[in-house]
Amino acid sequence: MLKIHDLHATVDGTPILKGLNLEIGAGEIHAIMGPNGAGKSTLANVLSGRDGYSVTGGQINFLGRDLLPLSVEERAHLGLFLAMQYPVELPGVNNMVFLKEALSRVMQARGQAPLDAVAFMKLVGETAKKVNLDPALLKRSVNAGFSGGEKKRNEIFQMALLQPRLAILDETDSGLDIDALRIVSDGVNKLRDPGRSMIIVTHYQRLLDYIEPDFVHVLAGGRIVRSGDKSLARELESKGYAWLAGEVAA
């Protein structure tokens, strides 16, 4: 589904990713862990096509297409979704108008006919229920005045609505208390599907107790320095990232 080969990227001229390789198959969940400043969020943003992240080398292939020339919205149309670490507030932007626009654009790209108002409302209601989102939040402006947990839940809700092929969860656990973490994780687990892959970017092993990954990668110094199964996450938790320092330097 996703093949990243020898990816190099800079932010403000500073090299952050330095030859990153990663392959993700359909239906797989990959966790990407690593110390602060390793390039985890840079990877997430580069995949989504955000301005300010310059790819200086390497290739990214998504569903058989070269991802790099595509705009942010074209990537979303292909089925890429980024659940953000810090979802912005959009004061005054009506949630329903936003969701309807996003869904119809994504469905159009999939060759599906747009939903009528009744079907749309029904889908929104069912999806909110599925990921345990208070429907009252959807009557407000997007993320405006939401608590940290509500914002993260709203990200998962949007993901459930848009049904992406590849979801990238960027530090979704940051700022969540244990109850919110469980609710968000339940939502994510309900979206596991043989046709849907996920990249879970996280600092801590804690989230992986709730969302069980197929693979765990350690990103340090701009490269994947170690890959393994979920037991690698536990190893990291007990030993810290320092024991991989030698591999970072190498």
């Binding site: 989504s48 942010v72 919205e73 979303a76 912005v88 959009l90 996003a102 654009r105 994504v106």
Partner: peptide
């Protein structure tokens, strides 16, 4: 705000 524009685009909404 560039972050707000990005947020909407990342959901498939054109610029």
């Amino acid at each position: 705000d560039a972050d707000q524009v990005f947020y909407l685009r990342s959901r498939g909404i054109d610029i």
